[in-house]
Design a protein around this nucleic acid. Sequence first.
DNA 1: GAGCATTTGTTCCTTATTTCACAAATGCTT
DNA 2: AAGCATTTGTGAAATAAGGAACAAATGCTC
Lengths: 226, 226
Amino acid sequence: MAMNSQNGKDPVPIPTLERVTTYLRFLLDLEQSQIDTISSAEVERQTGINAAQFRKDLTHLGQFGKPGVGYNVAELQAQITRVLRMDHEQKVILVGAGNLGSALVGYPGLQEHRLSLVAVFDNNLSKIGRPLWNLEIQDTATLTEVNKVLGAQIAILAVPAPAAQKVADQLVEAGIRAILNFAPVILKLPRNVYVRNVSFLQELAVLSYQLASESLNAPLKKQEKE
Amino acid sequence: MAMNSQNGKDPVPIPTLERVTTYLRFLLDLEQSQIDTISSAEVERQTGINAAQFRKDLTHLGQFGKPGVGYNVAELQAQITRVLRMDHEQKVILVGAGNLGSALVGYPGLQEHRLSLVAVFDNNLSKIGRPLWNLEIQDTATLTEVNKVLGAQIAILAVPAPAAQKVADQLVEAGIRAILNFAPVILKLPRNVYVRNVSFLQELAVLSYQLASESLNAPLKKQEKE
DNA sequence: GAGCATTTGTTCCTTATTTCACAAATGCTT
DNA sequence: AAGCATTTGTGAAATAAGGAACAAATGCTC
């Protein structure tokens, strides 16, 4: 009678979600390797993610495993795919056809996850009208109008920082409900629009700190236990 | 007599670190805008980050603000920069000169943060020897040897998934202590090597789920306040 | 088909993070 | 220079996440 998580009831914690996407990747690799069953203990061995955590994460999505056996790889992969809505085709638009934007478009994983890039925008006149892969770059100014037809809900924002907020506002205006933001800017958006920020500079800063703090913390003793 | 955090004593929590890099970005913007003082309350207003959290995060790095006044923007920015070791020049190497790698190299923010790209590697014969921006692409096979001279501690890993683990091993062999990994693979590395993973596909998956769960959670009522 | 070796789902406990709330500190005003 | 309006830094409370442990479930062996 436990109806705790069968249907999308309780919101899946963000940390869990982030790991789940990792599980999906891992499971796809296992499928490649013709492995059809895996236990949480084996997951821990291969990924370093705690077995109990793996199991608990999955309970947020539903029930999948068989006691004494483990998880059917293909089935679990399909389930996660379904939960993440990666089984439907989803339209994505890109704003910003610079180096980064262009690199993202070319990334093969997009189709693999049923993410279909349906339009690319840029405000650079010399780029507008040119092809980027299989799409023609359109004027950012027409973004709202164009997406009223396309109806994409997800956008990738890869414009320079100074332009980001303005474009983000246009995206919302255009009906976009989720933004993957590469600009190093804190976007101010309505609460009902989801944002994920990606900043490789910030990631490098974290690494930089970790390196630095290490030499501060253990400069005297060379003991390297645990 | 509180010697709790002046020198890198307690390890700064990762969530705090991640926010700190955001603060840094924000402070740099404020400096641009000629704003020289800011309070935690104002930070909350402008970034959405809880004021108490901002203050507590900063205490992990030291003491900065003045009661009744707030924080000196330039000073705080400089402090954070120092703590993150972004005041020293730091060498970075890149492995993988594909679309993504090329885009990263061109990113202007690198120099701004004193991150100096000193070498680029790829294993594609048609790329080796060619210039990428101001560097010549070198053979990944020579990575270990080359970095013994260069002595970079930070690497950006932007190779295809199947090659990632092998290259990562080479990086460690080459003395790299921190890896920014763009390959959708869980790297198995010694505990004393720091890794940060960046995966925009996973980020899109999270957004996809959030969109989906929303329509599950509030499909009946259309009330959408705030 | 009973016993055994596994392995899950879940409860309970521990640890970490966030938020609250307020005393101490600062500078401004009169 | 005393009072006042701020705003910090920080303990203490609340919330969230992570991990250990175990009963229930499964399939395998004999």
